[in-house]
Design a protein around this nucleic acid. Structure first.
Length: 225
DNA sequence: GACCAGGCACATC
DNA sequence: GATGTGCATGGT
């Protein structure tokens, strides 16, 4: 997946996780718009709940921008109910497609012609799209080399002593990318592997005994657990 | 029943 | 700038 000039712990972490679990095949969405919808619906929400919501949207032929654009907030909220925060997220989906129609004639190809920085700024200008959601869209829908940091990333980095608990999102991005090749496939796989790590072993109550990263734990346990 | 999940906006200090 | 709060369903 990436060349073998491994000199930093974070490269070795990638290698350990990749050897343990192999490719994660992210993002689990067929179209770019489905990736965008998933990125908004999964905010602070388990992916299994997002899958249910996406199934309902597909059944209602609502997984295209025009359907969200024409639908009322109440209808959108009813489709995405299983994903939680459905009133908030309905407004966020509407806000995204309203930006898409107002500025790009409803055409994702048009939106995605923007350079990465301009595209990120445009995404962040939408109410309900913050740094992680924007970067997920950039990486997994627009295929830009942008590293996605999430709660799992912050947790595992701080527990291993690589990041302060007070570190910002941008601090985490800088640290993660400093020693990695700027490569869409590497960023794609790494973020997905970290999420799997978080789900399986690096929960608020950690399960370090069987963690693939055990070799990195000082005294066999994380610093802050 | 408590805790957690692939955040974000907004109010308040 | 930092901290607290609301948003809500579904799995463990």
């Amino acid at each position: 997946m990436y060349p073998t000039f491994m000199t930093s712990p974070l490269k070795e972490v990638y290698d350990l996780l990749y050897r343990a679990w192999g490719p994660q095949h992210w993002w689990p969405g067929r179209t770019r718009f489905e990736v965008i919808v998933g990125a908004i619906l999964t905010q602070n929400t388990a992916w299994t709940n997002v899958e249910k919501a996406i199934r309902v949207m597909k059944a209602n032929r609502a997984l295209v921008p025009i359907a969200i654009y024409k639908a009322g907030d109440k209808d959108v909220a009813s489709w995405i109910r299983p994903a939680g925060y459905f009133n908030v997220k309905a407004r966020r989906l509407k806000a995204f497609v309203e930006m898409l129609y107002t500025d790009f004639n409803g055409d994702l190809n048009h939106l995605f012609r923007l350079e990465t920085e301009a595209l990120r700024d445009k995404l962040l200008s939408v109410n309900g799209i913050g740094p992680e959601t924007a970067d997920s869209i950039l990486l997994y829908a627009a295929k830009r080399p942008v590293f996605v940091v999430d709660a799992y990333t912050m947790r595992f980095m701080s527990r291993h002593g690589w990041l302060s608990l007070k570190a910002s999102y941008d601090d985490a991005v800088r640290l993660m990318t400093a020693s990695l090749p700027k490569d869409v496939d590497v960023y794609n796989e790494y973020h997905a592997l970290i999420v799997n790590l978080g789900k399986e072993y690096c929960r608020p109550t950690p399960r370090c005994e069987e963690c693939p990263l055990k070799p990195f734990l000082p005294s066999g346990r994380p610093i802050l657990c």
